[in-house]
């Protein structure tokens, strides 16, 4: 079993800024973490490895600082990691990101199972996983809340959707995007952390991946940010305070009253 885990490094706070020229994010090197949902993907791969023979490789596309995220993944117990890093990758939208990551997965694959987070907390698009699945031509199962069974040839998973839970069985290879319901990620041990710190993470660039400049980064991105604005969505509240409060409460009661009657009518219809 060969497992790939996609790990994104994200800013720890919501203090990131946008470049007004390109509309892409300006990241600061300090205060970065592994995207929380990707910790669940790492954990899922480790649990599979505990139940069968498996090799786990993590991939991250990002700036040199993203090496830290990969070291943490190694400290948690995965076997190897590659940082996909090239100045030409800057400004990538989700498609350009998916093209680069899927190329790396082909180069080091084929993988039986590819695990990603359901979405990253910074971009909040949740698109990269399914995009990679489509580029590789493997089935995608999103919103996975449980990995029920896995063998060398197939997987059984639980998918949480609006109206319930679906249980899917699929041939491998498959790509899963995981929610936080799937497991509780472990903490790396001190020993593992030390070991990971000494490790040299291999970096892969555009040329190694045999990607042309026009397919990557801002150039390879079909979307462009054309405007950034700070929303003003205010309303004019009538504020009831102190002695006025009672009047405000009466107003709210009047406003809510029709919904009582509706309820009441429905109850009658139900009775008759």
């Amino acid at each position: 079993m060969k497992i790939a885990v996609l790990v994104k490094q994200v800013p720890d706070t919501d203090l990131v800024k946008l470049d007004p020229e390109t509309g892409t994010m300006i990241r600061e090197d300090s205060g970065n973490i592994i995207n929380p949902l990707d910790l669940h993907a790492i954990e899922a791969s480790l649990r599979i490895k505990e139940s069968m023979e498996a090799t786990i490789i993590a991939f991250s596309m990002g700036p040199p600082a993203a090496e830290e995220a990969l070291k943490e993944a190694i400290a948690m117990g995965i076997d190897n990691a590659y940082l996909i890093c090239d100045r030409r990758f800057a400004g990538a939208d989700t498609l350009a990101t998916a093209i680069v990551l899927s190329k790396a997965l082909k180069k080091f694959g084929p993988f039986d199972l590819i695990l990603a987070g359901e979405k990253a907390v910074d971009g909040e698009t949740g698109q990269v996983g399914p995009e990679i699945g489509a580029l590789l031509g493997v089935p995608v199962f999103s919103y996975i809340s449980k990995i029920i069974e896995i063998t060398d040839h197939h997987i059984v998973v639980e998918r949480e959707v609006e109206d319930g839970k679906e249980i899917w069985k699929s041939d491998l290879p498959s790509l899963l995007t995981l929610t936080k319901e799937v497991n509780e990620p472990r903490l790396p041990t001190l020993n593992m952390k030390k070991k990971a710190r000494r490790l040299e993470i291999e970096t892969l660039g555009c040329d190694f991946l045999e990607l042309s400049d026009t397919n990557v980064g801002l150039k390879g991105s079909p979307t462009r940010v054309v405007k950034v604005s700070t929303p003003k969505i205010a309303r004019d509240a009538v504020i009831y305070e102190g002695k006025e409060l009672e009047k405000g409460i009466r107003k709210v009661i009047e406003l809510l009253r029709p919904y009582l009657e509706e309820n009441h009518e429905e109850a009658h219809m139900g009775n008759s």
Partner: peptide, 23 residues
């Protein structure tokens, strides 16, 4: 942008090599 739309749209966008904006 439901569990269906958020899964099939990125896959379709990648297959068609075009852009997609979420939410």
């Amino acid at each position: 942008a439901t569990t269906t739309g958020r899964t099939i749209m990125p896959a379709l966008a990648a297959s068609l090599r075009t852009g997609l904006t979420a939410d």
